[in-house]
Amino acid sequence: MTLEPIEPEIAVESYLKAVSNELAKSTQYAHKSRLGHFVRWCGEQNLDNLNELTGRKIQQYRVWRREDGDLSKPSEKTQMDTLRVFVRWLESIDAVEQDLHVKVRSPSLSPEENARDVMLERETADKVLSHLRKYEYASRPHVSMALLWHTMMRVGAARALDLSDYYRKEQYLEVVHRPETDTPIKNKQRGERLVAVSDEIAEVIDDWIQDRRPDVVDEHGREPLLATSQGRPHPTTLRKYCYQQTRPCVYTKHCPHNRDIKKCPATDDQEPYSCPSVVSPHAIRRGAITNSLKQDVPEKIVGDRANVSQDVLEKHYDRRSEREKMEQRRGYLDNL
């Protein structure tokens, strides 16, 4: 087989175009981010033709990525699993030797390790939202963060909301699967639900709509609730709010990592990801779910509100310790 030369950056761009109709946009974004590190490594190694990629070089990249990003085992596995998919695609276009993907190794995880623990703690969430309420009241970042924490929604569901999905008098939101107009939600029709909001959250939404929301429609003629001047926000925009607002230097004015805030690259609103303290939307969702469970909200109610099954709730979202669960059960002993 004759290999056809291809540069790493061009290969990644071609791969993302090739899978654009197969992967969800959020997955495409994740793959682009993870493979960006691979492109960076290739640049450092002067590897400008992927024909030269070997099993040994892949192992060198694995070690480099682990040390460069100070990755946990679950994070390392995610990085290498994405690289394996990419290398398999490279095989299909004769860019690397056949079966090279089998040499892409990633760590095996125990069930405990596979359930990720990163989450936004209640105390931190309160500080973030208090800062937004004081300094950016009823702004798009404020409304977005408040909704994600209070309703436990996924980013896709928050982005899909229209003005007509907010019932002001009854104080609830209706999550609807509308793939034909570019707002699918996870679990499709099974993910559709009514989500009640508190007086405080309703007040923020009301003030956003009345005073700050741009009067626009999206390309399908719908009125997005979390509107931008261009229409409906991209999922990346909402994710970026999460990273931006969970930087400690934003809500405390101090850095717990002893960085010079004036020189730290993470203070750039376009590059908040390099701050070790920032958390993803998924971590916010996990923290909100765990907080509700700690407040003795029944698991069935939390699961229905967050649109997550009992099994998935226990495996991926419930981060209460066994001691915390025992103490909560103790409160019911008098009724036995």
Rank of each mutant, 00 (worst) to 15 (best):
L23C: 09
L23G: 06
L23M: 12
L23D: 08
A24V: 00
A24E: 00
A24G: 02
K25Q: 11
K25I: 10
S26N: 14
S26Y: 14
S26I: 09
S26T: 12
S26H: 12
Q28F: 06
Q28T: 08
Q28G: 06
Q28E: 08
Y29E: 09
Y29H: 10
Y29G: 03
A30G: 09
A30I: 12
A30P: 02
A30D: 08
A30M: 09
H31K: 15
H31F: 15
H31L: 15
H31Q: 15
K32P: 06
S33T: 15
R34N: 10
L35S: 05
L35G: 04
L35D: 09
L35W: 06
L35T: 14
G36V: 07
G36Y: 11
H37C: 01
F38R: 00
F38M: 01
F38N: 00
V39Y: 04
R40S: 11
R40E: 11
W41L: 01
W41S: 02
W41D: 04
C42L: 14
C42N: 14
C42W: 15
C42Y: 15
C42R: 15
G43F: 00
G43L: 01
G43K: 00
G43P: 00
G43S: 03
Q45F: 02
Q45Y: 00
Q45I: 03
N46R: 13
N46I: 10
N46T: 15
N46Y: 15
L47P: 02
L47A: 07
D48V: 12
N49M: 03
N49H: 01
L50V: 13
L50K: 06
L50D: 05
L50H: 02
N51S: 15
L53N: 09
L53R: 09
L53F: 06
L53S: 11
L53P: 08
T54F: 01
T54N: 09
G55S: 12
G55A: 13
G55R: 06
G55F: 08
G55P: 02
G55T: 14
R56E: 05
K57A: 10
K57V: 14
K57R: 13
K57F: 12
K57Q: 14
I58G: 01
I58P: 03
I58A: 02
I58T: 08
Q59F: 13
Q60T: 07
Q60A: 10
Y61D: 01
Y61F: 08
R62G: 02
R62Q: 03
R62A: 05
V63Q: 13
V63G: 06
W64E: 03
W64Q: 01
R65F: 13
R65G: 10
R66M: 06
R66W: 08
R66N: 08
E67V: 11
E67D: 13
E67I: 09
E67T: 11
D68A: 13
D68N: 11
D68R: 12
G69P: 05
G69Q: 07
G69E: 07
G69A: 08
G69L: 12
D70Q: 10
